[in-house]
Computed example of a mutant assay.
Amino acid sequence: MRIDLRAIASSLQDVKRILAQQEFDVMLLDLQLQSGQCLDVIDQVKQCMPLVEVVATSIDDDEALAMLAFEKGATGYLVKSSWFVSYGDAILEVVHGGAPVTASITRRLLPRLRNGAGARGARLDGRASQGEECLTLREQEVLQMVAKGHTSAEVATELGISVQTANAHLKNIYRKLQVRSRAQAVSKAIALGLLLQARGATGA
């Protein structure tokens, strides 16, 4: 798969300009970008382009900062000083449904995530909790394919719909599940019992 670089930003002002002028699928966001308040950029991206995946990068090997990025809607978190294959591989991982996270961050986040899952008391009866709408059959089909790592284009081809329609379904899934990324949608759907058959396919 080819990666097409659409724009480079050196400041938050550049980011705002790009959001108004460009369309793209993945953003690599340096949390040390000039002018600060970079976590707020994730909010802006998700408001303007809900389907864009954001991979945060930072010099800080800090699980608290990573959690804040994830809560804002980031799909991945990479520490610059750590070893990882490449930014290109991270982008491809996101496009194929993955969530690139530096290993040291993942190791420290696991206990926190496990505790959070226990506190939420995940439901496995397939019903949505209060405040969450039920997914349509088509939305469930889309989510099943996303959980298996398919891109929007692949979902569209498999289901015989346009890419725009596939993305519209995915946007509705985000809204109904009250999430902001593919990884969050799959994780929450599994917790709600909506993707029991896809457990083995998520690999996360």
Results as ranks from 00 to 15, higher is better:
residue 68 L to Q: 15
residue 154 E to R: 13
residue 163 V to S: 08
residue 96 H to T: 07
residue 88 G to K: 14
residue 135 L to F: 12
residue 118 G to A: 09
residue 174 Y to P: 02
residue 58 S to K: 12
residue 88 G to E: 15
residue 136 T to F: 06
residue 67 M to S: 04
residue 197 Q to C: 04
residue 141 E to R: 14
residue 83 W to G: 09
residue 142 V to Y: 00
residue 65 L to G: 01
residue 124 L to D: 12
residue 13 Q to I: 04
residue 43 D to I: 01
residue 131 G to I: 06
residue 121 G to P: 10
residue 6 R to K: 15
residue 112 R to H: 07
residue 78 L to F: 06
residue 153 A to S: 12
residue 159 L to I: 10
residue 154 E to D: 13
residue 153 A to F: 06
residue 165 T to S: 11
residue 168 A to W: 00
residue 3 I to A: 04
residue 171 K to N: 06
residue 53 E to V: 05
residue 114 R to C: 02
residue 124 L to H: 15
residue 94 V to W: 02
residue 201 A to M: 04
residue 4 D to P: 02
residue 194 L to N: 03
residue 3 I to L: 14
residue 134 C to S: 12
residue 204 A to L: 11
residue 42 I to K: 03
residue 57 T to K: 00
residue 20 A to H: 14
residue 183 A to Y: 08
residue 122 A to T: 12
residue 172 N to Q: 04
residue 173 I to L: 07
residue 171 K to L: 03
residue 142 V to K: 08
residue 85 V to H: 13
residue 65 L to V: 02
residue 126 G to D: 11
residue 104 S to E: 07
residue 36 G to K: 14
residue 18 I to H: 15
residue 174 Y to M: 00
residue 174 Y to G: 03
residue 155 V to K: 10
residue 155 V to P: 12
residue 112 R to F: 06
residue 113 L to I: 11
residue 154 E to K: 09
residue 44 Q to H: 06
residue 143 L to H: 08
residue 110 L to F: 03
